[in-house]
Design a protein around this nucleic acid. Structure first.
Length: 399
DNA sequence: AATCGATACAACCGCAGATTG
DNA sequence: ACAATCTGCGGTTGTATCGAT
């Protein structure tokens, strides 16, 4: 397996980025997009490796980043997500719009781990420290304290292990990653018969429904000994309509590659944006993910329609020529009004926003149009605050 | 004012999976 | 089929800042 060529190049700058470098990178990506990261530094006139440029953009320069301290709700979400996902920072970050995996990882390592310990909770297992101490006395084969090993083995255990008891029959403190993911697949794995559909693909979906569960059952945080992370699907789609599902949750339900197209303005599809950015690379697993996700929604939940999201089942169809021809400048200069009413604008923008990967989100929200050149038609922070309001209502309590 | 430790944050490193030729 | 390359991720390290002494 070859290493990234830039790693061997000499005379490349390392360390902190200067404002001039930031400006060069920002200007370049604003005008041209990043395309192939390995070529960005050369084209942008930077003495950096492409990897470094990518990291700088994702973690610092991206316009959709939410700077500033984490809110209590965000911290709670991170703890909650970590209980299920472990150190999968990118997946956790995907649930927190405007936050990067690096940011969350730092917060966890510097702050949240400490907080949990102070409250008598082991940050690795999310179990009470006393219980973890007892586990240390157990033989290594039963020690689940090793977070990495535990997470890594989860996906295997999902397949190999027999169905577990329902959460209500379990110790409510048992909120480890494996138990929740196993439960999810035990109950809903039938929607994903194809063995190409890996358990990890379902994690995002699991999460969203976990949030729904909080909304419908008023569950507490996993750190709360009285709570459990059981997943009880709503019996009807109307239940789901009443659930506090948000655009960021949709992002989890629908794979990144699924084409979500606005009813109001089909000419501007997020697919075009993505293909423009990815040089028309078609993800090999897109159709599989699409199928698994839509089947999941249609067959199990029947919610696709209720979410007012048009799922184009021809996501694999090549783009229209005019879409392929879209360039940065066109995006930057094209008013991004996606509907006739403010409500529609928000709805559509949220839909598209939810579809775009975190590191590419700048294209669709503030940026395409208004990032530097004009005020946005809507404030992204509105979306965030809207989501966070929902979360705060949903989660209901803090640590 | 100088020093030192703690903390937070930014960036790097190495690896694995995906993609490409 | 294979190797080279690219991308993304998570762990780790480096560094700036702040408060205590």
């Amino acid at each position: 397996m070859g290493r990234h060529s830039c790693c061997y190049k000499q005379k490349l700058r390392k360390g902190l980025w200067s404002p001039e470098e930031d400006e060069k990178l920002q200007n370049y990506i604003t005008k041209h997009g990043h395309g192939c990261w390995s070529s960005v530094p050369k084209l942008a006139g930077l003495q950096r490796c492409g990897k470094s440029c990518r990291l700088r953009w994702i973690n610092y320069l991206r316009p959709d980043l939410k700077r500033g301290a984490f809110s209590q709700q965000e911290e709670n979400m991170i703890i909650e997500l970590h209980a299920v996902l472990g150190n999968r920072w990118s997946q956790i970050a995907a649930q927190l719009p405007g936050r990067t995996d690096n940011e969350i990882k730092n917060l966890w390592n510097s702050c949240l781990k400490k907080k949990l310990r102070q409250r008598g909770i082991d940050p690795n297992t999310h179990k009470p420290l006393s219980e973890v101490e007892n586990d240390k006395d157990m033989p290594p084969s039963t020690d689940k304290g090793n977070q990495k090993a535990s997470v890594a083995s989860n996906e295997l255990s999902l397949v190999d292990q027999p169905a577990k008891a329902m959460p209500s029959e379990r110790d409510p403190l048992e909120v480890s990653t494996s138990s929740n993911q196993e439960l999810f697949l035990d109950r809903f794995g039938a929607t994903c018969h194809d063995n190409r559909c890996r358990p990890s693909d379902m994690v995002g979906s699991y999460f969203s429904f976990q949030h729904l569960n909080y909304g419908t059952t008023n569950m507490g945080l996993s750190a709360n000994p009285n709570s459990s992370l059981c997943f009880i699907p709503p019996s009807t789609s109307s239940d789901l309509n009443n659930s506090p599902i948000s655009s960021s949750m949709l992002h989890s339900i629908f794979p990144t590659h699924v084409k979500l197209q606005s009813n109001n303005n089909p000419s501007i599809s997020s697919d075009a944006v993505q293909n423009w950015e990815c040089n028309n690379t078609v993800k090999s697993n897109a159709s599989m993910q699409l199928q698994s996700s839509t089947n999941f929604l249609d067959n199990t939940w029947g919610v696709a329609e209720s979410m007012k999201v048009n799922i184009n089942k021809d996501a694999q169809v090549p783009l229209q020529a005019e879409q392929e021809d879209l360039k940065w400048s066109e995006y930057l200069n094209t008013p991004f009004i996606l509907g006739n009413t403010p409500q529609n604008q928000i709805q559509t923008s949220q839909t598209i926003y939810s579809e775009v990967k975190p590191e590419t989100g700048f294209i669709t929200d503030k940026s395409c149009t208004s990032w530097y050149h004009q005020p946005p038609a809507f404030q992204l922070s509105d979306i965030y605050s809207k989501d966070m309001q929902r979360f705060s209502v949903t989660f209901g309590q803090t640590l």
